[in-house]
Design a protein around this nucleic acid. Structure first.
Length: 441
DNA sequence: GACTGAGTTG
């Protein structure tokens, strides 16, 4: 602990010396530190590298890597990103690429900043086409939701350099923003691309529409759908499934029936996702026999039921109160090796609905993966059964596993505890939740 | 020229 803290202090002082262009003093500080038993770490060397690159030159910075290795410290992604940034500052494209290649050789995985820097370097030396390719082929394709904001930033960077993105690029970006739940940004981008004179295609519309529905902006989603229709866009299976799914969720049967008829009429060969939409439609109407018949039709067409098909059917059975058959179907699904998480959640909901709460708890214990739905369902039903202490325990373990249950269920537990024991007890539990959220989320 | 989009549980 002492050593780590000291190294941190050493690093802070070396950083301020480097910023003040006092590289010799920084070196002296490092030697003093070693003499006192404070060993430099990768951060220390990275700081020095940045200083040398800035005030002496790229090669001076790069040579620090050898000293690092001699000291038994391996360079990391930050080391190379710093060197790439330095190469970019000096317009040394080949050195920038060298650093990226060296990273690969060392088994270091370049991150979004590495590619961002490479892109900047390409822009700086007048190779905007290659910069665009880096953005398009590498950054967008390797994006995770938490990196979406970075990608958006890069996208804006490119636009400032006069780039006109292709519609596909917009589509990929919009889809990533949707996965990250950034509905407002999606809508802004969608309006913007139209204003800039781009032509959104069916995929753009479908993706924006899906985003609206996923973020519970049904009215706006249906407006996008109407706009698509008004402008004469061709509907394909994807767009039909998207809109039908939303209408089924809203319980708008008349419209759903209408578009299902359209989807069948357009004459595209239905795929499994389309059959799943139809099977879900039957299940929601309570026509389970029709649902199973549709699965048979799909299988006759050479298609195979997937995890969605089985989950939809199990959910349908549970909603109809056919717990025994649902259990059998779930066992069958497990045996076939499908991912059964959502199916389990539906089954648990079904069990609670018919009053088999203790059996639902047993099923819960047997599950190897759980999500916030699993926990929320049980917490909700335990509260209804006034079993607040057990609900509180589950709520806490859910948060400790890094998941957030519904706010309404959290409030129900707190209110329940206050009622059965004391307001003080409830407050203590509230604090526990607060702490758990800070630590685990 | 391809790369992109749909379907299951609160």
């Amino acid at each position: 602990m002492f050593l780590r803290l000291s190294t941190k202090l050493l690093n802070i002082s070396i950083a301020s010396l480097c910023r003040a262009k006092q590289l010799e003093k920084a070196e002296a500080a490092m030697i003093d530190g070693i003499r006192l038993g404070v060993l430099p770490d990768v951060v220390t060397y990275n700081t020095l590298i940045t200083g040398y690159c800035q005030f002496v030159g790229f090669d001076a910075g790069y040579s620090v890597i050898h000293r690092m290795r001699e000291a038994g410290i391996l360079p990391n992604v930050v080391t190379y990103n710093s060197l790439m940034a330095a190469a970019t500052r000096h317009r040394l494209l080949s050195r920038c690429v060298d650093m990226l290649e060296e990273m690969f050789e060392m088994g270091i995985v370049p991150d979004i900043w590495s590619y961002n820097t490479l892109m900047h370097c390409l822009l700086k030396v007048g190779k905007p086409d290659d910069a665009y390719r880096v953005f398009h082929d590498i950054i967008l394709k390797n994006m995770t939701p938490c990196q979406t904001t970075n990608a958006l930033m890069l996208f804006r960077n490119l636009q400032r350099h006069g780039y006109i993105p292709e519609i596909v690029t917009y589509n990929i970006l919009i889809n990533s923003l949707c996965e990250a739940g950034m509905w407002k940004t999606v809508m802004t981008l969608f309006e913007e691309l139209k204003e800039l004179g781009h032509y959104p295609n069916t995929i753009t519309y479908t993706t924006v529409m899906k985003c609206c529905f996923r973020c519970k902006h049904f009215k706006e989603g249906l407006e996008i759908f109407m706009e698509m229709k008004r402008k004469g866009y061709a509907f394909d299976l994807f767009s039909y499934c998207t809109v039908i799914g939303a209408l089924l969720k809203l319980g708008k049967w008349k419209y759903a029936n209408n578009y299902i008829a359209h989807m069948i009429k357009i004459g595209y060969e239905l795929d499994m996702a389309s059959y799943n939409t139809l099977i879900n439609w039957c299940c929601k109407k309570g026509k389970l026999e029709d649902a199973y018949n549709l699965l048979n039709v799909a299988e006759d067409m050479g298609l195979h039921g997937d995890k969605y098909t089985h989950t939809i059917l199990i959910n349908g059975l549970c909603r109809a109160g056919n717990i025994d058959i649902a259990q059998r179907h779930l066992n069958h699904m497990k045996m076939m090796g499908f991912d059964c998480l959502v199916a389990h959640n539906c089954f648990i909901t079904g069990l609670c609905k018919v009053g088999l709460l203790d059996y639902a708890l047993q099923v819960f214990k047997s599950m190897d993966t759980k999500d916030s739905f699993t926990y929320s369902t049980l917490v909700h039903n335990l509260c209804r059964a006034k079993r607040y202490r057990l609900a509180a325990g589950l709520l806490l373990s859910c948060i400790k596993a890094g998941m957030i249950p519904l706010g309404a269920d959290q409030r129900a537990v707190i209110a329940g505890l206050a009622r059965i024991s004391s307001p003080r007890d409830a407050k203590r539990f509230k604090n526990k939740i607060w702490r758990a959220k800070l630590l685990h989320y």
